[in-house]
């Protein structure tokens, strides 16, 4: 049975790698379309991590909603919009690069330290069971109903954001 544990661990790192590769592609691609597909890869990796956490329901919803709906809507927005043909610059550009780097790093460290200090880590249960649907449903529709409704604005944001990106290009030039 140890072999399966190794396979599971390898899969976990494969999904982590997929998530980060996709994220890197999304941020650093020269073409907008490649960036969107990088986003899809990244979200697929996150779906894999959900499966690893023992919730097939969340995995399928992640693929169905994020890869299958949000990414497709963004791609459609890019296709319909007047996409500029020029590629984004290869190097990191911008006058305020050092300041941006500093701000990002400080923000990350501050949040990271705060999160690590505040969180009480408890050992995971041996087997949560396949209660994910019931648990998720009850929590979403009773306790966190408002948050659940607000999340659906994500789709609207995806449409508007993709139109803005597609019209202005990655460098922010307005046509």
């Amino acid at each position: 049975m140890i072999v399966f544990e190794y396979i599971a661990e390898a899969l976990f790192y494969a999904f982590v790698a997929l998530t980060f590769t996709g994220g890197f592609l999304a941020v650093r691609s020269k073409l907008l379309m490649h960036a969107v597909l990088g986003l899809a890869v990244s979200l697929f990796g996150v779906a894999g991590l959900y499966f690893y956490l023992g919730s097939p329901f969340l995995t399928m919803m992640q693929i169905l909603i994020y890869v299958g709906a949000v990414c497709i809507i963004i791609v459609l927005g890019v296709m319909i919009g007047n996409t500029p043909d020029q590629l984004a610059a290869k190097k990191l550009t911008g006058r305020n690069l050092p300041i941006a780097l500093l701000a990002c790093t400080t923000g990350f460290i501050a949040l990271f330290v705060a999160t690590i200090n505040r969180t009480e880590f408890t050992a995971a249960n041996e087997k949560i069971g396949d209660m994910s649907i019931k648990f998720v449903g009850e929590n979403l529709l009773y306790q966190y109903c408002l948050a659940f409704e607000l999340i659906s604005v994500v789709l609207l944001t995806a449409i508007i954001g993709s139109i803005i990106l597609a019209r202005g290009g990655r460098e922010g030039k307005t046509p």
Partner: peptide
């Protein structure tokens, strides 16, 4: 236990391929 969702999720990737 979420078999139908799995089918829907992987069918939606086909649209992405066509795009």
């Amino acid at each position: 236990d979420v078999g139908y969702l799995l089918i829907l999720a992987f069918a939606s990737i086909n649209v992405l391929a066509i795009l």
